[in-house]
Write a protein that binds this DNA or RNA. Sequence first.
DNA 1: TTGACACATCAATATTCATTGATATATTAC
DNA 2: GTAATATATCAATGAATATTGATGTGTCAA
Lengths: 108, 108
Amino acid sequence: MAATTFPEIGNAARVFHALSDETRLEIVRLLSHGERCVCELQGALDAAQSRLSFHLKTLKDAGVVSDRREGRWVYYALNRDALDEIAGFAVAVKPGKHAGSCAQACCS
Amino acid sequence: MAATTFPEIGNAARVFHALSDETRLEIVRLLSHGERCVCELQGALDAAQSRLSFHLKTLKDAGVVSDRREGRWVYYALNRDALDEIAGFAVAVKPGKHAGSCAQACCS
DNA sequence: TTGACACATCAATATTCATTGATATATTAC
DNA sequence: GTAATATATCAATGAATATTGATGTGTCAA
């Protein structure tokens, strides 16, 4: 069964996984106000530096954020595409979207 | 650490976690066409019954699906509220939403 | 060039999660 | 009643993940 109409499931799973942790959601929330460097996030979240770095890497690998070095600092920002993918998923899956057109008998 | 303005972060994390697995996303995709009983999903996904049951429980605990018994069968269906929460999150977090109003100096 | 700062990475540990196979429960048919 | 079907739950195992503390790397300033 091909998943043609769907945003690639593997990628969606990766994005959702990145958002499945409270620390990372807090990071996303902070970044929704604009880009931030790691030390700012560190102050706001009261989290150990290596811990934060780990979560930022997770978010970055999933494409949820991007980073940009400026001198000594690295600034992280939300990636609009990933957020669009999430919203698109929610819409594609909304019940009623296909309603009527594809009822299926149960297996016995 | 107060997360006042956001859709409760803990709940969002739970929903995202439920969607962070490919098997569960396939289930969601199938349910987007309408409610299905477990055995139907089993056939479509070629997954062991206990495995499917585990994933369905995960989805249900997160509020992504609801179930309904009918005789011998249990039918699962998508829960619109959870999908709305996801879409709402994507919107609330969209960069530019707060732009300008809340720049912050870096930590040093 | 030395030292301080911002950040990433690594190694070790603990925790959480997914999968499997076995068993339990409920419903229906005979 | 017994047997068969649909589903849930449990126990054991292995894999993936998060956290911590230590160390490495690049950048800047004195």
